[in-house]
Amino acid sequence: MRFALTTEQQELHQVVAQLLGDACTPDVVRAGTGSPQADRLYAGLVDLGATGLLVDEEAGGLGLDENYLVPVLVEIGRAAAPLPLVDTLAVAPGLLSATGRAEDVLAGTVCVAADPVGNGLVRFGSRADLLLQGGWGGSGVIRVVDLAGAQREPQAAVDPAADLQRISFGTIIAEIDDPALVRTAWLRGVLGSAAELVGLSRRMLDLTVGYVKERQQFGVPIGSFQAVKHHLASALLAVEFAAPTVSAAGYALATGDEQASVAVATAKALASDAAVQVARATLQCHGAIAYTTEYDWQLFAKRAWAVAAQWGTAAWHRDAVARALGLPASGTSPAH
């Protein structure tokens, strides 16, 4: 038993954190998906081998597992990187082998987005070359869609940095119906979003802790007030107890645990709830300064709200776990 990253996992985590710290500043998030800065960020991640993290070594990847993936996606969340990285790093591996495009992803010439719902609403859509459509809940069919020549309509969205597009008329180049592949792709998408949410939550907390130490009212830093302390302590509690469930879910997937789907659902439910709670608490502790698009908090909060609702909401995953525990489930969640 050892519930901590190995030295190798830590090293990968640190090198990715370093890259994102340098290449994914809030200015880069604002510059957005189609910007040269975002392209440089993607190239940097590709250089580190990130797009091949879960790809077998024989296929040119790093041959690593979800234990490595989780800390990397936590950092990607912390930076609010304006690219479909959960989809490209976590969901795509294993799904593209029949399409002849897997090498392009490894080489960084292709970026992959996912649309598990299948309604054509795609985040970071202008950067997506391939779309993985369908597979909601880990069952059914995932269509691999080539987006060259597809129709893309930008959507007005809560988060302008999300580059939300309605995409239609792509070319289906493969249909994945292997239940194991579809299930794994779904679970990795859920896990990846949960990891992103942990990073986003930590970033909002860091930003706020820094602010309340500096901001003075009544002649003292507002962080000295008990009401502010208690908001932030509660927010920290939510993150600190969600984060280990994400690591444990990564381990469960990496080791082929048959309970992995329950672990992953638990991680996403707790990470989603934590992120929404942290967003609310950190806005309140900032006061009006955070209630503006000029301040950076909104970049992380809006991303968090969106990711909390992706790949199954907290309530949806609780419903799935209810079913797994033998309780009456009411929603559309799948049998685990």
């Binding site: 901590a4 600190e240 107890f241 609780r318 419903d319 776990v321 209810a322 489930a329």
Partner: peptide, 21 residues
Amino acid sequence: LTDRVVRSWMQAQAYQQFTLA
């Protein structure tokens, strides 16, 4: 109530994982 039961169940798992770390 089912939702609350599952929420608590998940939090108990979280407490376990936190403790292992």
